[in-house]
Design a protein around this nucleic acid. Structure first.
Lengths: 164, 164
DNA sequence: ATCTAATGTTTAGAGTTGTAAGTATTTCTG
DNA sequence: CAGAAATACTTACAACTCTAAACATTAGAT
């Protein structure tokens, strides 16, 4: 079994764990991971457009729309069409939404967060860098003028190309 | 922005990249990532049950069933109920399925594989270990008697608890 | 031998996700 | 200003994913 095949398996396990946690969240807190993430974005950024939300949470605009549909239907969020530019739509939390969000748990497993934070700093850095590196390598074909990823630059914070 | 929040973002990016690639695969090769993965498992393991497939690809049994439904409908796979134990169902590739699979590309971005393999060995090891570590930390609450994860044991191959 | 528990798969229902096409609005160009 | 191009969002559709419940079969217990 080649090394990258192991990466594939590890990836599937990570993705699955994330999904399972999302389902668990939805049962206990009434919000799934993506819903939670989107609401947090709205809270933190204030008067956001749908597109901005999509960028922030790494989802397509269409996906955010459908999730907002559900949230709006439940009275946790409302939309206002911008008067300045009527193409734009701004999302806001309702009072009920803010309350629910305030009580809601982390979008990541508490358990995971706790474990992660108890790691040595260098280890946290390494894990984060690895994940970002993987994300960059995977996204490379989406980004036309992708930066040259220097081998061995791992521990530098290379972040990733913010969409222009 | 705390360190684990960056992890969350990186994770979303990785998951999204995986998803996008799957959609792309489905367009070019006619098979999505999970379909491809399942078919490879059938090819490599021979006479497998649905449950075994599910374990191997880190998906629930129900998910594998629905994916097999689609594959069977397209004549790429067929099911045979075991005569020994009539609860069991074995999945096989049809000739057409084998052909398609032979031509199909990697379930992971070629580009990614290439980049990954061009990394220094220590870096590959580090990335793989990081991913496995994240997967382990996330899965911990699913596994009752989870092993104690020693801080700093990163580079040892701790794999993960194989289901008993 | 029968009832119960365990095992293996499928079905039902809900949520997330993407692409492509459709609609509305704004901006640019002649 | 009229038409074309760009921008922002929504709708339609297909796939994936899970849990819970239903179903069938086998294994174990009395």
């Amino acid at each position: 079994m080649s090394s990258y095949e192991k990466v594939l398996v590890a990836l599937r396990r990570v993705i699955r764990a994330t999904d399972l946690h999302s389902k668990r969240l939805s049962k206990h807190a009434g919000l799934t991971g993506p819903q939670l993430l989107i609401m947090r974005t709205i809270r933190d950024l204030g008067e956001v457009t749908i597109g901005t939300i999509a960028d922030h949470v790494s989802l397509s605009q269409a996906t955010v729309t459908t999730i907002l549909d559900r949230l709006e239907h439940r009275g946790l969020v409302y939309r206002v069409r911008s008067t300045r530019d009527k193409r734009k739509v701004h999302a806001h939390l309702t009072e009920q939404g803010e309350e629910l969000l305030a009580q809601a748990p982390n979008p990541l497993q508490e358990d995971f967060v706790q474990k992660f934070q108890s790691l040595d700093e260098w280890e946290q850095t390494m894990i984060l860098a690895s994940l970002q590196r993987v994300a960059n390598m995977m996204n490379a074909d989406d980004i036309d003028a992708s930066p040259v990823l220097t081998v061995g630059s791992m521990l530098k914070d290379d972040g990733w190309k913010e969409k222009a």
